[in-house]
Nucleic acid binder design. Structure first.
Lengths: 213, 213
DNA sequence: GAGTGTTTCAAACGTTCGTTTCAATCGATT
DNA sequence: AATCGATTGAAACGAACGTTTGAAACACTC
């Protein structure tokens, strides 16, 4: 039945690379089938048309990059929950490595130039995580209205996504070696410190005092 | 000679909108000529082909948006400089409605799906502004090393770019009407408050206390 | 107002794309 | 070995695209 080397799977793999590289419009079905070692008609036979193939590939990208929908945060104090979420978000979205290397680029492309498939992506993958963050934020700021909660969450997510979306620009801006020196541990700690300080739950950011000093 | 309503100018205007909306591949010359009120052959007559038209449009976008490289910050206190930069950044990059409204979206598109032109873009468009932010941040945190300064700046820029990069996702996430309610004034104030609080230069963010209360 | 270079126009060209077709082939079941 | 649904293959289809064409319309000079 589901041979791992089946044409369908090879098509998804090849399509993922092609869509991630060129986007939906510029991607060529002929290229995809060639790379998958399949016939030109294979896409239409297995998926119907180009758009449905894209939808399957996009959801597959999210499936592979999102094994856990929500992190285990238990009943930690709110500040630690927030720190845990930031670590989770970085691991899953920002620095997580994908098999084949096309899932994250594809997802990022979709977020910035959405297609019709975006609604399902938002509903299945983004909203649950955003609601988790919002609930943590509500715990920290019980008095804030919904609008304030939203922008507080956006400030957290924006800081994190920065390192995904502007990677090419950042490399040219500060030099590739300096960008590479910003490892996940350092970034998670910075974003968490920055955010907790902004919320009045920790010391000011950027003072670089060693805790042991 | 150079009638401001000349076909060539109207083509650049229409092409800017089309390229900004759909990108190079998905943009249609027929749509561009239609919007410009020009004949289908006009693009080839005035620019040669689609790619040369794109180059001209992209350079025109930079030319128009490069009038003000840096905001007037004078010798305000550092916290006010930072607030001024955030306002400037929002006006120029995030909500900046340039004539026709296509220059910034087109540039953003180029930034996240870079071509060979990215190096020049970084040098002329991004680096001067980033260095300004870094100098402000250095004034606030004289003791911080370069790496810390970088991520502090990234936290500011990330919060701002959030509202440009993920606009479509945000609309689906919180509803278009809620997204529309986040006007520039509100966002500038939020990001500035959040950032200054993170740096220990202001009250904690999200408390929503009226300053007069 | 004839002459000349520039710009616009409707129509079509050649290509490429996604998609379809239908016969050939495979694989399991009897 | 025969059967039959599932899959693959070579070829072609229709549509849409960027581009070209050649004549008409225009603007300007003398």
């Amino acid at each position: 039945m589901s041979n791992p080397d089946a044409t369908k799977d090879r098509l998804i793999e090849a399509a993922g690379r092609e869509f991630a590289e060129k986007g939906f419009e510029a991607a060529r079905i002929r290229t995809i089938c060639e790379r998958a070692g399949a016939n030109l008609a294979a896409v239409n036979y297995h998926f119907g048309d180009k758009e449905q193939l894209y939808r399957v590939v996009l959801l597959e990208a999210y499936r592979r990059r999102s094994t856990t929908v929500t992190p285990e945060l238990g009943d930690l104090p709110p500040a630690e929950k927030l720190r845990g979420f930031i670590r989770f978000f970085f691991e899953q979205v920002v620095v997580g490595e994908d098999e084949g290397g096309w899932q994250t680029p594809l997802i990022m492309r979709e977020l910035f130039h959405p297609t019709a498939a975006l609604d399902e992506v938002v509903g299945r993958w983004i909203r649950p995580r955003f609601e988790l963050l919002r609930s943590i934020m509500r715990e920290i700021r019980p008095g804030a209205d919904e609008r304030r909660l939203t922008v507080l969450c956006f400030s957290v997510v924006g800081q994190c996504l920065m390192y995904r979306m502007t990677r090419q620009v950042s490399g040219r801006l500060i030099g590739p070696e300096n960008l590479a020196s910003l490892d996940a541990e350092y970034l998670v700690d910075h974003v968490a410190t920055f955010t907790l300080a902004a919320l009045g739950l920790g010391p000011a950011a950027g003072l670089d005092e060693t805790p042991e000093g």
